[in-house]
């Protein structure tokens, strides 16, 4: 069966869809009240964020748009030092979408939300003309424990820069079909709640963290250097590498430092916490390949990121410009 405009009509067909797919998988005490607004408990400082997901294909190696829509928002909340609590979701379904595909996506969303320990408390569905696709928006709310202050502005000279794993896996998982290249690379889409929670629990003094999504590591670090007014120096040789991702990028003239991820975090911690942090991250299921990749060397009003290349050259990294197009030329 496929989605038709009737599923968005607001009548019985819509109600059927909500019951048979959304409540079935995502249902909880708050969502199933089906009121116009969800009412939840709060706290004194909350983080809120929103993100829309339009990935094509909606199912790819290692994940799907449902898992992605939870990971993206949950990881954004974590970056503010928040404990992710509640999500809302808006579905834009395109006519022609297979109901079975929708159900797979929603069920994957439910599993990911469970893994991340968040409740989906409100939702909406619309149907538009289209060609069988699906967009999802998720908004999230997280509670920030008192005394916790995580921000790029807190980055200090001497901080160690740690990344939680290899770069580019999500991007490759999406791009490989479009470029007709086959490999075993799976998307890294993952909620990093456990990893971050155990860093806090063990007293690691995280100054700042950011999930490495679109634009890749280079873009994220360029932004962080600019907003903290520091110079970040990386060692190219210390970047954790996945050989398949590296060759995939070389084939297309791309660089792993500009490739997107959906389950990788970059942390800034004081050098005294480096070993402890690395140990904790590597013990997490999503952090096996974590590594220290550089340090914050000094203040720099404009902010700069310098990478010491394999041969000892110095290369300045800029935020990605435009869209990361495959480059055969």
């Amino acid at each position: 069966m496929i989605i038709t405009m009737a599923f968005g009509g607001g009548g019985k067909t819509t109600a059927g869809l909500i019951n048979d797919i959304f409540f079935k998988h995502l249902g909880n005490d708050i969502l199933c009240r089906a009121e116009d607004s969800a009412v939840v408990e709060g706290c004194s400082r909350i983080a809120c964020t929103t993100d829309s997901f339009v990935v094509d294909p909606i199912e790819y190696d290692g994940g799907d748009i449902g898992r992605l829509s939870v990971c993206g928002t949950v990881n954004d909340l974590l970056c503010a030092g928040a404990e992710p609590k509640y999500l809302t979701c808006g579905f834009i379904l395109h006519e022609g979408l297979e109901l079975a595909a929708l159900e797979r996506v929603v069920s994957s969303m439910a599993l990911t939300a469970k893994e991340a320990g968040v409740k989906i408390v409100a939702g909406d569905t619309k149907v538009t003309e289209g060609s069988g696709g699906l967009f999802i928006n998720t908004s999230g709310v997280g509670f920030i424990p008192s005394g916790r202050d995580i921000s790029a502005g807190n980055i200090k000279t001497g901080d160690s820069v740690i990344i939680s794993g290899c770069l580019g896996e999500h991007h490759v998982a999406i791009l490989k079909n479009r470029m007709n290249i086959k490999n075993d690379v799976k998307s890294d889409n993952a909620p990093l709640v456990d990893m971050v929670r155990s860093l806090f629990k063990n007293g690691v003094n995280i100054h700042a963290m950011r999930d490495i999504t679109r634009g890749g590591l280079a873009t994220v670090l360029a932004e962080m250097a600019a907003s903290s007014g520091t110079r970040i120096e990386l060692e190219e040789g210390r970047l954790p590498q996945n050989g398949s991702v590296r060759d995939f990028c070389s084939l297309l003239g791309l660089e792993t430092i500009y490739m997107g991820n959906e389950g990788k975090m970059v942390f800034f911690v004081p050098p005294c916490d480096e070993d402890k942090a690395l140990d904790i991250i590597r013990n997490d299921r999503y952090g096996k390949n974590a590594g220290v990749i550089g340090t914050v060397t000094c203040e720099d009003k404009e902010g700069s990121v310098i990478m010491r290349t394999a041969m000892g050259g110095m290369r300045r990294l800029e935020a990605m410009m435009g869209e990361g197009l495959p480059r055969i030329c």
Binding site: S244, R246, F248, L251
Partner: peptide
Amino acid sequence: DFSGNTVK
């Protein structure tokens, strides 16, 4: 094959 990438 390129380190696990198969190209036709």
